[in-house]
Amino acid sequence: MNMSDTQPSLKRSLLYRTTTGEHYKQQDGGMLVAQFSANDAEQAKRCGLLDLSVARRTGLRGKNAPSVLSEHLPGMANTSVIQANFAEQLSTGEWVLRLGKTEYWVLSSLTGTNASLDALDQAASQTADCYPLYCQSSHAWFVLTGDYISEVMAKLCAVDLNERVFPVGKIAQTSVARVNAIVVKQTYQGIPAFSILSDSSSAEYLWLAILDAMQEFNGQAIGADVLTV
């Protein structure tokens, strides 16, 4: 299946004009590149870039945001307080990002139903001193994977993202290739990764800028299956 076969009711990626994968799959009401090429697994370990923009994410801000999170996100029960600019993966698979004193984003697990994120959205808009953030629409979500991620980011970003000073779970809110971005250090299936969340209006530009920086490490786009299946 390619992007032209996409049913009109399904969300398209922000990159649908520039990027075409080999296989797509339905995820969170959108079409996600499942496989970019037959070489995805090896590519992800070396230097891969994945577009997860259609995958589910949400955010909330306000004095009551922590209590809404712990009430509606089952995985939060086993989690201690997350410091600002740190992220934690819950036992249920979601990543919770704390971006400020009272601001939290939740990235979906990529495998679950994400019903808890829907409940979170609803609760955020119905609770006093808690406001939903529409980062699903406002931001693109890319994942840079593999052994060379720090070297690639060193070309694009002034903050030192080397493993020694930027371990898994750390967040940098900074400028990447001159556009504002949130960079989160993670691992997917044991592969080191940076999630990069950036303004959706410059998604195509940033995608190409990162691919360009990846070129000297033989970097290439990958599909989501390699990180989830």
Binding site: G100, A158, A172, T174, N180
Partner: peptide
């Protein structure tokens, strides 16, 4: 590049402010 220290994010290039 001048550096400004953000209370939340630490030292960053002045172009981010």
């Amino acid at each position: 590049m001048k550096i400004l220290t953000c209370p939340l994010n630490g030292p960053r290039n002045i172009s981010e402010f």
